[in-house]
């Protein structure tokens, strides 16, 4: 599994994990992210059961496992958080931050040691040492209870399934040719995202944030001007197209 430091600040770092060449072929590739501060770490969308061993191995390349004090699940999908039952055995005192809507569902993955912090619909924050991260509402994008993580200091937005592309395991980490990349994102966003109203509400709120790096859970990350290009493209896209109108 590839590990890439994508932000290196004075007080914290962002690390991306993904492109695991040893993952079973039939499962989609996922990006996992971690924010590391002096004494704590937040693991975001830690992935499915099948990825757990590779993820744990790569996490301990960066931090002792006991430093992971927080876990975040943007929503309830298996590729996001089905490894919870295993992390629950690895982390004795961590807190899982996830949409309140999914608590009873997510607990099906097994959770005895980790405690649950239900994120309210309007969002909330978490502070790791001196670093405060925001849980930004992204409901219906695609799950009915859904959040992204925004780091105002690093100007990084972890955008869950927004900006995702289902690509081969050897795809580059960053979008280089945006127009070319649209081909890989088009169907995913039209089919997975159900609501134009929700999408445009999200675009309006995200435009107000200062973002240098947008990090989706599948595919490539968007840096610099490609973030704005993505927002423009997404705003113009008609989604929820499985229903004939």
């Amino acid at each position: 599994m590839l590990t890439k430091k994508i932000y290196d600040g004075i007080n914290h770092q962002w690390i991306m994990f993904g492109r695991d060449p040893e993952k079973p072929k039939a499962i989609i590739d996922t990006n996992q992210y971690m924010v590391r501060t002096r004494n704590n770490a937040l693991l975001m969308d830690p992935g499915g059961i099948e990825l757990f061993s590779a993820m744990l191995a790569n996490v301990v390349k960066q931090v002792p496992v006991q430093q992971i004090s927080h876990v975040f699940a943007s929503h309830q999908d298996p590729d996001i958080i089905s490894s919870l039952g295993l992390w629950d055995k690895a982390l004795e005192t961590a807190t899982l931050h996830a949409p309140w809507l999914w608590e009873g569902f997510i607990r099906h993955f097994g959770m005895e040691n980790i405690s649950f912090d239900a994120i309210p619909d309007e969002g909330s924050t978490v502070t790791l040492d001196s670093v405060t991260l925001q849980f930004i509402p992204a409901h219906y994008l695609h799950a009915s209870g859904n959040f992204h993580v925004y780091d105002p200091a690093a100007k990084v937005l972890m955008s869950g399934d927004v900006g995702a592309a289902l690509e081969p395991i050897d795809a580059p980490l960053f979008v280089d040719d945006f127009d070319e990349h649209v081909k890989s994102m088009h169907m995913f966003h039209q089919r997975w995202m159900p609501s134009n109203l929700a999408k445009n509400d999200w675009v309006n709120r995200v435009r107000a944030l200062d973002i240098e790096l947008m990090c989706p859970q599948h595919g490539r990350m968007f840096a610099g001007d490609n973030v704005k290009r993505f927002l423009d493209w997404f705003e113009a896209l008609d989604v929820g197209t499985a229903i004939k109108r």
């Binding site: 061993s53 390349k61 006991q66 055995k89």
Partner: peptide, 29 residues
């Protein structure tokens, strides 16, 4: 069966992380 599966995955993680800095932090789990 669930615990046996977890044990298997922890052992795979230890193998994969054999040269990683914080490998020993997995041992208590």
């Amino acid at each position: 069966a669930r615990t046996e599966s977890a044990l298997k995955r922890f052992k795979i993680a230890c193998d994969k992380a054999s040269e990683h800095q914080y490998l020993t932090s997995i041992y208590p789990a």
